[in-house]
Design a protein around this nucleic acid. Structure first.
Lengths: 179, 179
DNA sequence: CGCGACATGTAAGCAGTTACATGATTAT
DNA sequence: ATAATCATGTAACTGCTTACATGTCGCG
C-alpha cells in the first residue's frame, strides 16, 4: 500500500516542510482521516529521500539547530499524481471497539448498557462541537483549485460522520427504552 | 488493548466453537466493525488457553479429522464481563484512503475528481444494498436479552454509516458542479 | 533560569496481512 | 474424480505505537 508515503508527498506538494511540520499536520488538519507519529515519519522520509521522491536541505534555526527541510522532486510529483488518479477500493472496515461491545450487548443489563451508550454519546458530542466550530469558519465554499477545497470536503465529511454516529446512538437508546 | 481476545471471548460466551468457526464469524456477522484472519486467531486461541480463559476438547469429524472445540471458562467469562462494562475511549480515527485523496483534491482536475467520487459512490451503494437487504430480515426489533439485539443494533449502525457516506459523496459532487 | 515548543532520531513490541504448508470431508 | 469447504497451523513482513534518548530555541 505505502499510504503514508502518499500522505507525506501530498503535503509536500503544496509547501516544503520538516518532519516535525508533517507530524503536526497529521495531528491537526488530517487528524479526522489519517495520522502518523514522528517515529514513523522520520524513517519514511529517509526512505523517500533514498527513492529520489523527496530531497532536503539543511537550515539552521537560531545558532546551531539543524532542520531538514524536505521538498518533493519531479519524480515524487509524478508518483503522487498517478496515485491520486487511481480508483481506490473501499477502505477495509474500521475496527470499532464500541460497536464490538454493542454486538455483545445481551451480556449486560439494560442499565449498564445505557451508561455505556450515554458515555459514548457525550464523547461524540464533544467532538462534533469542535468540528462544527471549525467548519463554521468557512462562510463560503472554497474554489476547487485551492487546498482549502479538500479541507472543506473532509471537514464536512467529519461533521456528517459524527452527526450520524450520534443519531445511531440515539436510536440504540430508543430501542432500549421502548421495551 | 488485547481487543481480539475480547472479540473471541464474546463469541465463545454464546456457544462453543472451533478456530475455523470463529474466523467465519469474523468474515460474516462481525465484518462491519471487526475482522481477523485465521493466522491471527489460532495463535490467539493458544494464548487464551494458556491463560486459562478458554479450554478445548478434541472432536473427531468423519474418520480422522481432529477439531479443537473451544469453550470459555469461568475466569474467561469474568474477564470478558469486566471488559464489557468498562467505558471505552473513542476508537482512534479510522484511516480512510479516499478521504485522504479528497483532502488533496486540488491537485487533479474536476473531471478526474468526478470519476473518483462517482466510483466510490457506486461501491458504497452496492454495500448499502446488501446491508439493507440483511437489515430487512428483521421485521421486529429483537428483545434486549437475545444475541439478535446486538446484531440488530450494529446492522442498523452499518446501514446508517453507508447512507451518510453516500450523502457526503453527493454533497462533494454538488460542490464540484455548482461552481 | 525554567518551561513549553521545536527538532530528530532509534528500539522494542504488538497487531495485522500475505504467503507458505498440509491434509480431510462432503457434495456433485 | 474433483472441487468446494472444513480444518489447523507457521513464517515473513508491514504498519503502527510506546518508550527511550537527546538536544536547541524562544519567551517570560
Amino acid at each position: 500500500m505505502r499510504n503514508l508515503k502518499y500522505a507525506i508527498l501530498g503535503l509536500l506538494i503544496d509547501t516544503q516542510m520538516t518532519g516535525y511540520d508533517i507530524a503536526k499536520e497529521f495531528s491537526q488538519a488530517l487528524n479526522e482521516f489519517w495520522s502518523a507519529k514522528h517515529s514513523q515519519i522520520y524513517p519514511e522520509l529517509k526512505k523517500l529521500e533514498q527513492e529520489g521522491l523527496v530531497s532536503f536541505k539543511i537550515e539552521i534555526s537560531g545558532e546551531i539547530l539543524e532542520k531538514k527541510v524536505y521538498t518533493i522532486t519531479e519524480k515524487g510529483k509524478t508518483d503522487f499524481l498517478s496515485w491520486m488518479k487511481k480508483k481506490s477500493e473501499l477502505s477495509s472496515t474500521p475496527k470499532d471497539i464500541f460497536r464490538l461491545k454493542m454486538y455483545f450487548a445481551h451480556n449486560i443489563n439494560k442499565n449498564e448498557l445505557l451508561v455505556l451508550i450515554e458515555d459514548q454519546k457525550n464523547k461524540h458530542q464533544k467532538r462534533l462541537d469542535y468540528l462544527t466550530l471549525s467548519f463554521a469558519q468557512y462562510n463560503a465554499i472554497p474554489k476547487t483549485g485551492t487546498p482549502d477545497f479538500g479541507d472543506y470536503l473532509v471537514l464536512e465529511g467529519a461533521v456528517m460522520r459524527e452527526e450520524m454516529t450520534i443519531a445511531w446512538l440515539n436510536n440504540c437508546l430508543g430501542h432500549l427504552m421502548n421495551e
